[in-house]
Design a binder for these strands. Sequence first.
DNA 1: AAATAGTGCAACCGCACTCCC
DNA 2: GGGGAGTGCGGTTGCACTATT
Length: 435
Amino acid sequence: MSSMTNMGDGRKVSKSRQSSSSDEEAKTGGEGHLKKGPWTSIEDAILVDYVTKHGEGNWNAVQRNSGLARCGKSCRLRWANHLRPDLKKGAFTEEEERRIIELHAKMGNKWARMAAELPGRTDNEIKNYWNTRIKRMQRSGLPIYPPDICFRVMHGNQESQNVGRLTDGVNQHDDLSQTDTLNIPELDFKHVKIPLDPSIFDIPENSMFEQSSDSSHGYNMFPIMHPAKRLRESAEIMQYGPVYEEDYMSDEITNQFHGNTCCSSSSSMPLSGGMKLELPSLQYLETQQGIWDTPASPLPSLESVDTLSSGLLEPIMYQPMKHFQVQETPDEAVKCKPEWDESGEPYSPLAQSSASVLTMCSPDGPQSVENSDHNIKHELGTEFPTYCSGKDEKNMNQIHVTRPDALLDLAWFENSVVNCDGESFRKDALNTFFG
DNA sequence: AAATAGTGCAACCGCACTCCC
DNA sequence: GGGGAGTGCGGTTGCACTATT
């Protein structure tokens, strides 16, 4: 049977490690001498023969019954990734690539689930592709998610919800119970930037607003492309935030908040160091969000913690959207409103959120709404020539009002916007902050 | 031509979950 | 209910190949 051993990865197998493995070594030399490393064609043949006769599963029995000197795990992996007859070979097609991007926007690093959506492709393959792609995009300074993919995710959310329900029903339906049992880390207020006039507590501003030393929580929300260029001042970023902010926030508050929001990227921290490039953005903020949200308000049915750990922005994005909706004019509320299916699960604005995040992460940084849109489209024109169409122009403008930081801003200001003047504003803000 | 850096990918590892006894 | 085996999954590693200097 043809396998990667005989195809793309022949280079590996044919080299030193492979050549050192004699055919005899394909057979076990004893229970305690399980072979590692690249598979030989002999081993492949043995495994294929065994699976053909006995079927998949019970992988440990393969080693016992076939004499193959491989652990069951290794056999399963080899079969699943290379020997399965229904595997597609070769590079991903453009459509598959699009699908992967779309699925990742929906699912995060759920490679197996993604693989289930891509017949003939393996989780490992998809994972490798994604990691490679991330690196490539990072080098190129391009957004990880093309905006139109994000919009497709959003507009196709009905489908995605169905998919999610089919493939991850537990997560989907345990939301509330999990919410109840979420282990909210104890807050360390030393690391919380309070977007208020520090005089309220008579606490020196520089301590109150001191940049968190653990800034990873901040910049992790952005898929860094060029660390040195990635993000500018948070306040600068925020200038492209919701247009409403100027309606509701005093300059002072706005500046403080935008400059210090715990959700935003650090304004001064270098965006360097290792990070996971899978929109990990608000993973940490999932808990911090409790700070900004009114504790008494019921949490929306967040995705499971597992999902959050997957790097998926979605679950934490739609709560701010819910708040966001309140402030909208009816028309806009319709546009931005988190939709709910029959089971009460909100649609996620992830698409916009992702696009927004990525917009802000363009190497040139935000210039203006128009410019950033243009930049994205321009860049995507090279990387995703077919992704952006004129019909998305309108949508793309929405990106900027739904950026995650902006959304969190708005979430935090949910109660504040009602009374945005002076003391009442501050009191409300404090109440919101401290519960 | 040789050395070095960068890239892609197969395979491994550890953890978690499910199933069965 | 508890423990072990089997399995699945995601992250990481190691190395062959390729590009660049």
